[in-house]
Amino acid sequence: MFRLIITHLFTSRYLLGALLILTIGGGYLGFRNWLDRRTEKKQNTEIIREGEEILGSWGQKSASSLIRFRLRRDGTFTYKMVQYPVSDTVTINGRYGISSANGHVKTSDYPRLIAVSDNGDTIINHFIAYLTPYDAAALDQGYDKMILNAGGRLDTAGLVFYRIKDIQ
Protein backbone atom coordinates (compact mmCIF):
# COMPACT_ATOMS: atom_id res chain seq x y z
CA MET A 1 0.00 0.00 0.00
CA PHE A 2 2.68 2.43 1.10
CA ARG A 3 4.81 1.43 -1.84
CA LEU A 4 1.91 2.04 -4.19
CA ILE A 5 1.44 5.55 -2.87
CA ILE A 6 5.13 6.32 -3.29
CA THR A 7 5.11 4.93 -6.83
CA HIS A 8 2.06 7.01 -7.69
CA LEU A 9 3.61 10.12 -6.21
CA PHE A 10 6.83 9.76 -8.13
CA THR A 11 5.05 9.11 -11.39
CA SER A 12 2.79 12.15 -10.92
CA ARG A 13 3.65 14.80 -13.50
CA TYR A 14 2.51 17.62 -11.21
CA LEU A 15 4.65 16.51 -8.33
CA LEU A 16 7.68 16.03 -10.51
CA GLY A 17 7.07 19.45 -12.05
CA ALA A 18 6.84 21.05 -8.62
CA LEU A 19 10.02 19.27 -7.55
CA LEU A 20 11.79 20.52 -10.67
CA ILE A 21 10.69 24.11 -10.00
CA LEU A 22 11.79 23.84 -6.38
CA THR A 23 15.16 22.47 -7.40
CA ILE A 24 15.70 25.18 -10.01
CA GLY A 25 14.60 27.92 -7.55
CA GLY A 26 16.67 26.54 -4.70
CA GLY A 27 19.63 26.04 -7.00
CA TYR A 28 19.37 29.63 -8.22
CA LEU A 29 19.20 31.01 -4.67
CA GLY A 30 22.07 28.81 -3.59
CA PHE A 31 24.16 29.84 -6.56
CA ARG A 32 23.34 33.50 -5.95
CA ASN A 33 24.26 33.21 -2.29
CA TRP A 34 27.57 31.56 -3.15
CA LEU A 35 28.31 34.21 -5.79
CA ASP A 36 27.37 37.01 -3.34
CA ARG A 37 29.71 35.78 -0.63
CA ARG A 38 32.50 35.28 -3.15
CA THR A 39 32.06 38.80 -4.55
CA GLU A 40 31.86 40.25 -1.05
CA LYS A 41 35.12 38.56 -0.12
CA LYS A 42 36.92 39.58 -3.30
CA GLN A 43 35.68 43.18 -3.45
CA ASN A 44 35.46 43.83 0.32
CA THR A 45 31.87 45.00 0.06
CA GLU A 46 28.32 43.97 0.98
CA ILE A 47 25.87 42.57 -1.55
CA ILE A 48 22.45 43.55 -0.25
CA ARG A 49 19.53 41.15 -0.50
CA GLU A 50 15.93 41.12 0.73
CA GLY A 51 15.71 41.77 4.46
CA GLU A 52 19.29 43.00 4.85
CA GLU A 53 18.88 46.50 3.41
CA ILE A 54 20.64 48.01 6.42
CA LEU A 55 24.02 46.52 5.49
CA GLY A 56 26.58 48.45 3.48
CA SER A 57 28.04 51.94 3.43
CA TRP A 58 25.97 54.98 4.32
CA GLY A 59 26.83 58.64 4.10
CA GLN A 60 25.56 62.11 4.91
CA LYS A 61 27.16 65.37 3.91
CA SER A 62 26.41 68.80 5.29
CA ALA A 63 28.15 72.14 5.27
CA SER A 64 29.86 71.27 8.53
CA SER A 65 30.60 67.56 8.25
CA LEU A 66 30.79 64.39 6.21
CA ILE A 67 29.69 61.25 8.06
CA ARG A 68 30.15 57.80 6.56
CA PHE A 69 29.68 54.45 8.18
CA ARG A 70 29.71 50.87 7.02
CA LEU A 71 27.68 48.10 8.58
CA ARG A 72 29.25 44.76 7.77
CA ARG A 73 27.61 41.37 7.62
CA ASP A 74 29.71 40.06 10.50
CA GLY A 75 28.28 42.64 12.93
CA THR A 76 31.20 45.08 12.87
CA PHE A 77 31.06 48.67 11.75
CA THR A 78 33.42 51.46 10.75
CA TYR A 79 32.40 55.06 11.35
CA LYS A 80 34.25 57.91 9.68
CA MET A 81 33.65 61.56 10.27
CA VAL A 82 35.19 64.70 8.81
CA GLN A 83 34.35 67.99 10.47
CA TYR A 84 35.04 70.97 8.26
CA PRO A 85 37.03 73.17 7.87
CA VAL A 86 39.56 70.69 9.30
CA SER A 87 39.80 67.75 6.93
CA ASP A 88 41.08 65.17 9.41
CA THR A 89 39.05 61.99 9.41
CA VAL A 90 38.01 60.50 12.72
CA THR A 91 37.70 56.72 12.34
CA ILE A 92 35.89 54.55 14.87
CA ASN A 93 35.53 50.79 14.72
CA GLY A 94 33.17 48.66 16.74
CA ARG A 95 30.22 46.34 16.75
CA TYR A 96 26.57 47.04 16.01
CA GLY A 97 23.23 45.34 16.49
CA ILE A 98 19.58 45.85 15.67
CA SER A 99 17.42 45.88 18.75
CA SER A 100 13.77 45.07 18.09
CA ALA A 101 10.75 45.53 20.31
CA ASN A 102 9.92 42.66 22.57
CA GLY A 103 8.28 42.20 25.93
CA HIS A 104 6.99 45.34 27.56
CA VAL A 105 9.07 47.92 25.63
CA LYS A 106 7.33 50.52 23.51
CA THR A 107 7.12 49.47 19.86
CA SER A 108 7.25 53.11 18.82
CA ASP A 109 10.93 53.25 19.85
CA TYR A 110 12.05 50.12 17.99
CA PRO A 111 13.83 48.81 15.90
CA ARG A 112 16.95 50.63 17.01
CA LEU A 113 20.38 50.58 15.48
CA ILE A 114 22.90 50.45 18.29
CA ALA A 115 26.58 50.75 17.43
CA VAL A 116 29.18 50.60 20.16
CA SER A 117 32.84 51.35 19.53
CA ASP A 118 35.69 49.08 20.59
CA ASN A 119 36.32 51.52 23.44
CA GLY A 120 32.77 51.03 24.70
CA ASP A 121 31.38 54.39 23.53
CA THR A 122 27.90 54.37 22.02
CA ILE A 123 28.28 55.90 18.58
CA ILE A 124 24.75 55.28 17.27
CA ASN A 125 21.62 54.54 19.29
CA HIS A 126 18.84 55.57 16.98
CA PHE A 127 15.39 54.44 15.93
CA ILE A 128 15.34 53.22 12.31
CA ALA A 129 12.50 55.35 11.04
CA TYR A 130 12.84 54.47 7.36
CA LEU A 131 14.83 52.22 5.10
CA THR A 132 14.32 52.00 1.34
CA PRO A 133 12.95 48.52 0.59
CA TYR A 134 14.98 46.13 -1.57
CA ASP A 135 12.68 46.22 -4.60
CA ALA A 136 11.75 49.87 -4.72
CA ALA A 137 13.31 51.48 -7.76
CA ALA A 138 10.79 54.31 -7.96
CA LEU A 139 11.30 55.57 -4.41
CA ASP A 140 13.69 58.19 -3.01
CA GLN A 141 14.97 59.58 -6.33
CA GLY A 142 16.37 56.16 -7.15
CA TYR A 143 18.75 56.07 -4.19
CA ASP A 144 18.67 54.00 -1.03
CA LYS A 145 17.89 56.06 2.03
CA MET A 146 17.94 55.43 5.76
CA ILE A 147 16.40 57.78 8.32
CA LEU A 148 17.54 57.51 11.91
CA ASN A 149 15.69 59.29 14.69
CA ALA A 150 17.25 60.10 18.01
CA GLY A 151 14.00 59.35 19.85
CA GLY A 152 11.22 57.09 18.69
CA ARG A 153 8.70 56.78 15.87
CA LEU A 154 7.03 60.06 16.77
CA ASP A 155 10.15 62.13 16.17
CA THR A 156 9.76 63.99 12.93
CA ALA A 157 13.30 65.28 12.68
CA GLY A 158 15.61 62.52 11.54
CA LEU A 159 19.14 62.06 10.27
CA VAL A 160 19.02 61.06 6.61
CA PHE A 161 21.74 58.82 5.24
CA TYR A 162 22.18 57.62 1.66
CA ARG A 163 23.77 54.42 0.48
CA ILE A 164 27.19 55.29 -0.91
CA LYS A 165 29.33 53.51 -3.45
CA ASP A 166 32.60 54.22 -1.71
CA ILE A 167 33.62 51.42 0.60
CA GLN A 168 34.57 52.61 4.08
Binding site: T45, I47, I48, I164
Partner: peptide
Protein backbone atom coordinates in the same frame (compact mmCIF):
# COMPACT_ATOMS: atom_id res chain seq x y z
CA UNK B 1 21.35 43.56 -6.35
CA UNK B 2 18.98 46.51 -6.89
CA UNK B 3 19.97 47.91 -3.50
CA UNK B 4 23.64 48.02 -4.47
CA UNK B 5 22.77 49.72 -7.75
CA UNK B 6 20.97 52.47 -5.85
CA UNK B 7 24.16 53.79 -4.27
CA UNK B 8 25.48 57.29 -4.74
CA UNK B 9 29.10 58.39 -4.89
CA UNK B 10 30.38 60.68 -2.12
Amino acid sequence: SPSNRRAVST
